[in-house]
């Protein structure tokens, strides 16, 4: 397999810059509510307007996530999702789609137990472009960040409101692909960020790096996405999408004919909102 000169993530942000608009980054949990439906959602995302896809690795103890993503992870685990199955899902997606970057997002333990070198080789082969691992701060870069960069996989770091100017260079040092700015001090899907405050924070980060900055945590509606995207290179929506999955499930928690279309429709309206932003 030949390695492209620029990564898919860099190419996608470059293309969006040409278009003069921010990126819509969509998060779904792999295997939620079952492997087949989840793959169906994944296949539908680019067409619905997702520019970059974050695929959540389910974990029993997601310490940074709110109730919506916690529940999505438990649904996926109940359905038998594993890290190996998540990588297989990316492989299936890549057979049909080459341009849309996929970033795996989750916690370190499933990867540590899988084995870091084996994971990176398998992820690279499957077509994974980046990793966001919530519980690996720069202080633990030797664990996965540096091996991932050596393997040609972007390690995307979270910067938060508690990351001050003194600490930012530490956080940005080995960050690749883009910077994920966590818009609130809190868990996913909780408080709604203030677009002006976020815009100032993004400007602060951009003074330290040339990487694109995407903003997430707490962005739920097309209006919020539009407001946040106006001051950033991308906006991440997650909890709202896994909630859209949940709302379509039947009484036994099984997917229905509405599951994939509901997510598609929400991504469509988010995309429309984000595309109306000109930068």
């Amino acid at each position: 397999m030949s390695h492209p000169m620029t990564t898919r993530i860099a190419a996608r942000f470059a293309a969006l810059k040409e278009e003069g608009r921010p990126a819509l980054v969509t998060f779904i949990t792999a295997g939620d509510p079952d492997a087949e439906t989840s793959l169906g959602i994944l296949h539908a995302l680019p067409g619905a307007g997702a520019d970059i896809i974050e695929l959540g690795i389910p974990f029993t103890d997601p310490m940074a996530d709110g109730p919506a993503i916690q529940a999505a992870g438990l649904r996926a685990l109940k359905g038998g999702q594993t890290l190996a199955k998540t990588l297989a899902m990316v492989k299936m997606f890549r057979m049909e789609e080459q341009a849309t970057p996929i970033v795996l997002m989750g916690y370190y333990n499933p990867i540590y137990v899988y084995g870091v070198e084996r994971f990176l080789a398998d992820a690279r082969e499957a077509g994974v472009d980046g990793l966001i691992i919530v519980d690996l701060p720069p202080e633990e870069d030797d664990e996965l960040c540096l091996p991932a960069l050596r393997a040609g996989i972007d390690f995307i770091r979270l910067a938060t409101p508690t990351t001050d100017d003194k600490r930012l260079p530490t956080v940005l040092k080995h960050t690749a692909g883009f910077v994920y700015y966590v818009s609130i001090t809190g868990i996913t899907g909780s408080a709604t960020p203030d677009a002006d405050v976020v815009g100032r924070a993004v400007a602060r980060i951009k003074a330290h790096t040339d990487l694109p900055v995407a903003v997430g945590f707490g962005v739920k509606t097309p209006e919020q996405a539009k407001a946040i995207a106006a001051g950033a290179d991308g906006v991440v929506v997650g909890s709202a999408l896994v909630e859209a999955v949940r709302h379509t499930l039947d009484r036994e928690g099984q997917a229905t004919a509405n599951t994939v279309p509901a997510v598609e429709a929400l991504v469509g309206s988010l995309s429309e909102a984000v595309r109306s932003v000109h930068r």
Partner: peptide, 20 residues
């Protein structure tokens, strides 16, 4: 200095908590 006892220990937390 990194909080390790052999391979154990460390600081595996979200960035929000790291400064704290």
């Amino acid at each position: 200095d990194g909080g390790h006892f052999g391979i154990h220990g460390g600081r595996f937390v979200a960035e929000t908590l790291m400064p704290l």
